[in-house]
Design a protein around this nucleic acid. Sequence first.
DNA 1: CTGTTAGCGCGTTCAT
DNA 2: ATGAACGCGCTAACAG
Lengths: 338, 338
Amino acid sequence: MSNKVTIHVIAKALNIDSSTVSRALNNSDRVTKKTKELVLKKAKELGYQRNSLASNLRKNKSYTIGVVVPRISRHFFSSAISGIEEMAYSLGYNVIICQSLEELSREESIINNLISNRVDGVLISVSMETEDGAHLKALKQNNVPLVFFDRHCNALLNTSKVSLDDAHAAYEATNYLIGKGNKRIVHFSGPQTLNIYRERLKGYIKALKENNIPFDEDLVLSSRLMELNGKELTKKIIDNNIVIDAIFSANDLAAIGAIKYLKSIGKKIPDEVSVIGFSNEPVSEVIEPSLTTINQFGLKMGKKACELLIRIINGEALKPHEKNEIIKPELILRESTL
Amino acid sequence: MSNKVTIHVIAKALNIDSSTVSRALNNSDRVTKKTKELVLKKAKELGYQRNSLASNLRKNKSYTIGVVVPRISRHFFSSAISGIEEMAYSLGYNVIICQSLEELSREESIINNLISNRVDGVLISVSMETEDGAHLKALKQNNVPLVFFDRHCNALLNTSKVSLDDAHAAYEATNYLIGKGNKRIVHFSGPQTLNIYRERLKGYIKALKENNIPFDEDLVLSSRLMELNGKELTKKIIDNNIVIDAIFSANDLAAIGAIKYLKSIGKKIPDEVSVIGFSNEPVSEVIEPSLTTINQFGLKMGKKACELLIRIINGEALKPHEKNEIIKPELILRESTL
DNA sequence: CTGTTAGCGCGTTCAT
DNA sequence: ATGAACGCGCTAACAG
């Protein structure tokens, strides 16, 4: 390191004690205005930069929160992070971003790393492989507050969460397809360990029931919802001569895969098969016909989750309803002609 | 804090010295296998979590790099960060993400904060307001390595950069429009303090010259390239009865604004006015007709920049050509029928 | 191979 | 209002 300008250096230069400098720099009311000014002036002159590492070590607080998401490049997550960062920044916190890449092992090592770095709290949207959340309990053991957003972990009941009303959104999406005259609707679902996919499945089933369409569990296909999964599942349906009218995918990637495969074998969309991809973000405009939401829920959820976390960090007791924040999505059902 | 399990605690429990514990935990070769095992076992048993703050303070190294981008929610930047994070993680570094929101004042305070946090290096894509980069010189003064990606700062000449061949891409884009028979082509440009917008303008001019189309500087309109700017500039063109065949926008947002405005007044695109939006990412598929790049340049640039930075951090001397990495874009010119 | 000692830079008691 | 001294948790230097 280079900048050896510590509080001691500026103390010596001013012939005062370093503790006075410390107090002055922290705007303590036990220091004369004059010395404060002197210190600040000298500090600027020497190019002093506080060493937060040392300060944080001493105070046992890092003013840093850890954020764990499956993949930062997904638009939903990047906008959530954007909201988190904005809120955190305005409250004087730094943010460490980590991607689990949907792998539990990575998530585990990330959590340990965050604990080592003494983050003051953690925001997480768990990976598809996460189930019992044993690694998350380590946070509790170390008194590191935790808030889930979007994807929860069932095992940790008493943890605060911020989420979307997925069941309702899925219900509306399915209703939309039914309204278009579709009856045999395939549902691409994700790991049932994740709340979001369970909820979306619920909404799908509810819509079918209300429209007196028999629920056929063979039409629910679970996968990791990557584009490739969408392709393969669709191929399987076609190859097995299963007759379907539409696909309701629990995310946009798998829907895109389905559309691409269907087009590649000459099917007309939505004339022969309707496809809807559930997505929190307008990114799904690329699919056809697509379901998308009006507002930037990622941003909203990020802000909300971060605010909640910092309130917990500050020792505020949350009211029960605040521990389970659910955001109502407004949906747009749009026909794309891509 | 809670988890008071330090190396001293486990040292006492084992009746050995804390320095031995430290060595064991760091897998030093100056410790018996037996004691290592004993220490590791005890550590796990007591739920020890290393305090990186203390370790980093002692070592004067944080294993953290700071990343500053205008906006994380832009697809280009989120994928760049994705690449950065991936590379950093694999090399044992953490990443602190910060958004300048295109504001110089925010960028300044971010840089100071990063210095305070003793990051080992900084990756930055500067804001639209950044010019002389005085705040970045503070990094140099503190021996904090710096690498630019995408958007440079002219004032800092000897700093490593990773960028796209913007001039070439813009040249091809303009050529594409000319090939379609367009002659009076408006160029939406950004602040000329930024290399990327200067380069894109260069490419535009070069294409005109090669095709013997006179360069009319009134057709170059500078703005901050937000969607609103695109709308307003287009409105101004129309309102002033300026005849144009096409618009080549230096980014996708302004292009979208232009398209929306043109459609709102009943113009046919691209029949009456062609619009192309320059973008590093396939996100521009939403515009029509659009120019987009095949590969994920954000990811590539992020990885490359991060790798470079960490090599500098490790004291490697870069060869001159490595200090100015330019990635050749492969372009797709695609007609969208949105 | 292990123990002893001495800080890293800062904030917080005590004093005065 | 200021100074002296200690310690946050860890690691590096030097013994032995």
